[in-house]
Design a protein around this nucleic acid. Sequence first.
DNA 1: TAGATTGTTAATCGATTAACAATC
DNA 2: TAGATTGTTAATCGATTAACAATC
Lengths: 219, 219
Amino acid sequence: MYKEKRISIAVIRRLPRYYRYLGDLLDNGITRISSKELSVRMNITASQIRQDLNNFGKFGQQGYGYNVESLYEEIRTILGLGKPHDIVIVGAGKIGQAIVNYKHFERRGFKFVKIFDKNEAIVGNKINGTSIDHISNLRAYIDEHKIDFLALTVPYEACDEVMELIKGSSIRGIWNFSPVDLELPDGMIVENVHLTDSLMTLSYKLNEDSILGEYGPKK
Amino acid sequence: MYKEKRISIAVIRRLPRYYRYLGDLLDNGITRISSKELSVRMNITASQIRQDLNNFGKFGQQGYGYNVESLYEEIRTILGLGKPHDIVIVGAGKIGQAIVNYKHFERRGFKFVKIFDKNEAIVGNKINGTSIDHISNLRAYIDEHKIDFLALTVPYEACDEVMELIKGSSIRGIWNFSPVDLELPDGMIVENVHLTDSLMTLSYKLNEDSILGEYGPKK
DNA sequence: TAGATTGTTAATCGATTAACAATC
DNA sequence: TAGATTGTTAATCGATTAACAATC
């Protein structure tokens, strides 16, 4: 019995970026690329690219580099984009509306199949072709369609309620837009989009020089 | 002449989280906390908390811990939230609308003062009290009001155009929602919200076990 | 005071970069 | 073949964790 080497989150977060750059290369008709060339474009080291890729397989060829199309496909598979994914959105507010309208997701094989909300008044409406249903039907829908992705775009007061509803269901991944750290049932995975945190990070960066000056450098 | 110690991005990204937890403690009337207690709540080590904070100052007291309110205020200052920030949004699509409607930002002192868009038809409309102006007036507005924050929520084809418009202006920070790595003029800072990357990361995580099985662990 | 907990130095762990033999 | 470039091992760098003297 061997121990699988876990892939670090730093590597994982670079994968979509590789995918994006390879897609651009494809669009530009470039069929091969070396780690060195790619490193220049992406502004990271060639070593890092090779290390990252070799976590998943040997995709290159000595003396040649990488075939853009096949590497693109490999990363596509690694990212789990080989098959389409159905996603339910919980919360029909502005953020829910924004993501259901955003065309980049469809292109990657993500489909928003239903939006659930508490507000009876909007049930039956459609947003970009996706209909709104009442939250009371969420669990039945998930169970029936074996949905495993859920985008959580409710106000944070409502998170607990939603988490309670989906406990023990087929949902495995939560794309969370609420500014809370969710308590996850076993086997569930979360990816946070903490917009407020992100904006504060930007604020910090703009402010950094004055702060480090104020408190003074350590030595 | 000393060399300032730069704060690592890992530390910076934890600051909003500290701020959030301290705010919760305050709301619950808790007035003091030790790094140990906080570490349990946040699920990180006490050592890390103390190391992080000591990048910026000595905020605690031996034998006592930290005063919640004063630590909250310190972090608030460090994050640059001590003074309000005016932000212009470029792009009145769904994402632009979502952020201008999102109340958490105001609470943190961020104010969206104007939205700019290419579409003449919606110029003059208001979203959540913020009026829409035509993109051709963007630069004049920035110059007049010395705006330093810009949220970029245009389709990615339009990014170059916007970047060109603001080159050499007072804008210092860009909150970027487009799936591109922006070329930044000197002194400008970007914070990316790459939603597609985020969703792909979640997809990867759900897919990881089957992938590592398929390609096999390295040893 | 004794106990608690910080701030900080030292040790460990992990991620990035460099180097190079293997090989196309 | 010779040149190019990978895959992978080794070296370096940086971040996290542990330990403990300082001190409230």
